[in-house]
Computed example of a mutant assay.
Amino acid sequence: MTKKRNIVVKIGSALLANQELLTPRYGFLQRLLEDVAVLRSQGNNVILCSSGSVALGLRIIGETPESAGISDKQAAAACGMPLLLNAYKQVGHEFGFEIAQVLLTLGDFEDHRRFLNTRNTVHRLLQAGVMPIVNENDTITTEEIRVGDNDRLAAKVAQMVGASDLIILTGVDGLYDRNPDEPGAQFISEVTDVAPYMEATRGKSTLGTGGMETKLQAANMAQEAGVTTWIAQGETDRPLSTVLDGSRRATKILPHPNPLSGWDSWIANRLQMAGSLVVGEDVADALAEGDRPIRREDILSLDGDFTRGDVLHVYDNKGTEIARGLSDFTSEELRVLANNPDTAAEQLLGYKTRGNVVRANNLVMLDTRHLLWDAPEALGDG
C-alpha cells in the first residue's frame, strides 16, 4: 500500500477575511476546499494552518486591526474562531469531508512530549479521513508565550507530520529580490538558500502578523526537515494543485538534500529562545569536530531563565551562533555550577551528575544552511 503524501497549507488572514467588512470570504473558501477535495481524491492528506480568527472577531467586539490591543485580539479570537470553523465546515461538507480543529500554543512545539502528543492527534485525524485545521490558540497567548505567526507554525506542523510540501498562500505570487512594488523588482522562481533574501523582506500585512520575512524563516525550517516550500498567490482557481503541478508561477524553496533527523530537526528549529550560553573558541572548534558534550567548565557566560530539557542556543566568543542543544540543568542550577567550577557538582546540587550541560547526542551543530539567531545583549556582559 502506497503511503499517502502529507501536504501542509498555510492560509493568511487577508485571503480568509474581507478587509473592510471583516467577514468570511466564502468565494475563496469554495475554491480552496474544492481543490483540497481534488488533492484528497488523489490520495494526499491535507492539513490546513489557518489564520483568520482574530480578523473575523474584531467586528463583533467593535475593534479594527489598527485599534486592537492584545486583550482585544484575544477576545476577537474567541469570537472569530466559531465563525471561521463554521465557514470551513459548511464548505467542507459540500465536498464530502469532515474537519477538526487543533489549537496549539508555543509550548506544544517547544516541549518534546507535547510535540509528540500533538503529532499523534493529527495522525489519528488523518487516519480517520478528517482534515485538521491548525491554529495558534490566540485566546490565551500573550506576546511572551506565543508563536506569533502562522508561517512558522505551519513549518513546525510540516516537520511534525513528515510533510512532502508546505504551500504558503498569500497576497503576492511569490518572492522578489526587493519590494515587488519597486521598479525593476525581479521574481525569484527557485531558492536553495533563503539567507540572501532576508533583508529585502521586512514588513507585514494589515490583517496578518507575518510578512515575507516569516515566510522565509518558515521555509528554512521546512528545508531542514526535507520539506519543499511553495510561496504563491492564493487568489486563483485551483490554488493548490496549480502550484504542485507547476502550471502557474510560484516560488519553490528546495529542501536540503540531507535533511536532519526528526530529533535533530526538533532541536535545531526553534520558535523562541529559552536560553543561551557562550563558549570559548577552543571549545567551539572541539564541538565542530563532533561527539563532544558541553561541560560546565566550557561556559563563559549564559542568559535566560530555562528549565531542564529546554533547548539552549550556543554562541562562540565572537557572538556567532554555532549550535543548539538540550540542557541537562535549569538556569539556576547551571549558574551555580558555572560560578563554582572547583566544587563538585554533586556537592553543589545535592544529586549525582557528571556536570555535562548538553550531551553530545542532544547537540546539533549549525552550518550555513541554518538561519542563525543574534546573541542576546546580556551575553556580552559575561
Rank of each mutant, 00 (worst) to 15 (best):
R152P: 03
G107N: 15
A154F: 05
D111T: 11
A195R: 15
A155R: 03
R114T: 10
R152I: 11
I167R: 00
A154M: 10
V147N: 09
A185M: 12
T206V: 15
I168H: 03
T142P: 06
E144Q: 15
E190R: 14
I145C: 15
P180D: 07
P132V: 01
T141L: 12
T139H: 07
P132Q: 06
V134P: 00
A219E: 07
V147M: 13
H123C: 09
Q127I: 01
A185W: 05
N150Y: 08
K156Q: 15
N137P: 06
A128G: 03
T170H: 06
D149V: 10
R119N: 12
N117W: 11
G162C: 10
T118C: 14
G171E: 15
M198Y: 03
N150R: 10
N150E: 08
I133F: 05
V122N: 01
S164Y: 03
F187A: 07
N117L: 13
G208W: 05
L175K: 02
N137Q: 12
D151Q: 11
V161R: 00
T141K: 04
V194Y: 00
T206Y: 11
E213K: 13
A163K: 04
N137W: 09
E136P: 04
L153S: 13
S189C: 10
G174L: 09
A195K: 13
D111S: 12
P183L: 10
Q159F: 04
G107I: 11
G162R: 01
D138C: 06
N150G: 08
P196G: 04
V194N: 02
V122S: 02
E199P: 03
T139N: 12
N150I: 08
H123W: 07
R146W: 07
N135L: 10
D165I: 02
L207Q: 03
A219Y: 07
I168Y: 01
L175F: 05
Q159E: 15
E190F: 05
A200P: 02
D108E: 11
T142N: 13
R113D: 15
A158R: 01
L125I: 02
A163Q: 02
D193E: 14
V161D: 03
R146F: 09
V194W: 00
M160T: 00
G129F: 10
I133R: 02
Q127S: 13
S164I: 01
T118S: 15
P132G: 00
H123E: 14
S205T: 13
L169M: 06
L207Y: 04
R202T: 11
R202C: 03
M131C: 09
E110Y: 10
V172N: 06
A200K: 08
G174S: 11
G208N: 06
N137E: 12
F115I: 11
M160C: 09
K215Y: 04
V147W: 06
N150V: 06
L166A: 04
K204H: 12
I133G: 00
T121P: 04
S189D: 14
H112E: 14
T121A: 13
G210F: 04
I140N: 13
A200H: 09
D165Y: 03
E182L: 14
T201R: 00
A155V: 10
E136D: 08
G129S: 04
A155D: 03
T139Y: 10
P196C: 06
